[in-house]
């Protein structure tokens, strides 16, 4: 039962949930099963937010078990240590350090840039990702997000895939 587990973490207002929507849409459109889960409800900004995305032929629980994430994407450097426990040995950690300050026209699209980086070590085509961007954002935000995504792909070229550990 090969399920890919991704945990996305950051602070409220950083577009963590939006990024998980984009990832889920891409995976779901490719024909796979997806479950995406987060806890939300508080309107106020600034608190920690994590969302779980699970992708595979069959996905059961919508929550990633602690220590079983293949990918941990953190959108805010202060939240990295806090969330390391999600990552499995050999899993891939993606942090905002990957996208140097100033590279993005608008730091608001950091979420999409980091997904661009992650996309280099995931199994979906660039066309599938771009189609999902079009589905998840209103037309006037397509260009800025496509730009951020492309930048992320460039900067993520050096990432390696999660290590396959026996039995996983």
């Amino acid at each position: 039962m090969a399920v890919t587990n991704i945990v996305l973490a950051g602070l409220g207002g950083q577009g963590v949930v939006k990024a998980s929507d984009l990832l889920s849409t891409t995976a779901f459109s490719s024909g796979l099963q997806v479950k995406k889960s987060e806890v939300h409800g508080m309107s106020q900004r600034g608190g920690s937010v994590t969302t779980d995305v699970r992708i595979g032929k069959q996905v059961l629980s919508p929550m990633v078990p602690m220590g079983e994430a293949d990918f941990l994407m953190v959108f805010e450097s202060t939240q990295v240590d806090l969330n390391l426990g999600w990552l499995r040995p050999g899993g891939v950690l993606i942090t905002p350090d990957l996208i140097p300050e100033g590279e993005l026209k608008n730091r608001k699209s950091l979420n999409v840039a980091l997904l661009g980086a992650a996309s280099m070590v995931m199994d979906f085509s660039e066309q599938e990702w771009v189609a999902a961007i079009h589905q998840c954002f209103p037309p006037k935000l397509h260009a800025v997000n496509e730009h951020a995504f492309a930048l992320g792909r460039k900067l993520g070229a050096g990432l390696s895939r999660p290590e396959v550990i026996e039995g996983v």
């Binding site: 409220g12 106020q44 900004r45 202060t78 806090l82």
Partner: peptide
């Protein structure tokens, strides 16, 4: 479980 940053009133 990791205890994140609590929410706060918006600026």
């Amino acid at each position: 479980r990791p205890r994140g940053k609590p929410p706060e009133l918006c600026q």
